[in-house]
Amino acid sequence: MADHRSTDPGQTVTNCSMPPRFRTPGWKLSLLVVTFIGLICHAFIGTELCSMTVKEIAEMPGNVLHLLQEMVPPSTRGLPKIYKAILETLQMCLVGTVFGVFVSVPLGLLAAKSLSPHKSIYIASRGFVSFCRTVPDLVWAIFFVIIVGLGPLAGTLTLMVDTIGFAGRFFAEAFEEVDSGPQEALSAIGSSNNGTFFSCVLPAAAPSCINTTMFSIERAVQSSVVLGLVGAGGIGMLLEEPMVWQNYREATTVVLTIFIMLVAVEQLNGYLRRQLIGKSG
């Protein structure tokens, strides 16, 4: 055992050995690293990247050029239909997100460990939120198309469930991270649990919740494009037909419109987020 004698500042320490820069990894960490590298190699083979021939790689730029030639100039033939679909997409996103956020606030409260009234309620809420999040959008969309039929209602419900899965988790974490001091102060006043939540936890977590809500809207707009491919409404439905019939000029118009819509929503979101977080005190 090293002899830990006290030394004056600046004096050379002779009896203590300097700790090494890196620790020798234990067998558990080594096994983990080897397994991880093995998984990456397996995945690499699975994606067929290894089986590509030189000829196929050489043909790629030509294929891209050919596709681009067929895509431009974009067709303006279906513009009125596209505008209508964009409006429908934004409506789906707004309604789905707003309802999803409304459900997520109480759900986040129940799923926050420090605020949940009972452990069983906490586990059930967390489980429900995780379930909503882990099931992919497309599966929810197919499920709702079967239940309510083709169209924007199925998409709206899908986006709502998707928002619950996403916002529910982040709201719960935001509520858990709120400083416990003011909560203790309100508890010492004799405030009820509801009073403490609405007067203290919610205002303190507001910036995080606003961020999550805004990001949910962005996610919803992105998701809604894919949902249309399974008939759940929105602009995605317009993308399916030209792609199937290889009408690439019309597809380009839809893709460009989607791109403009996403950028516009992102910019508007950023502006609103700055305004709301700056003034929500």
Partner: peptide, 20 residues
């Protein structure tokens, strides 16, 4: 809660809700 309501408590770290 009713009992606590009758007793004021002042904390060292003030424990106010900062954003309000």
């Amino acid at each position: 809660r009713d009992m606590r309501a009758q007793v004021g408590f002042v904390f060292q770290r003030h424990n106010l809700v900062q954003r309000l």
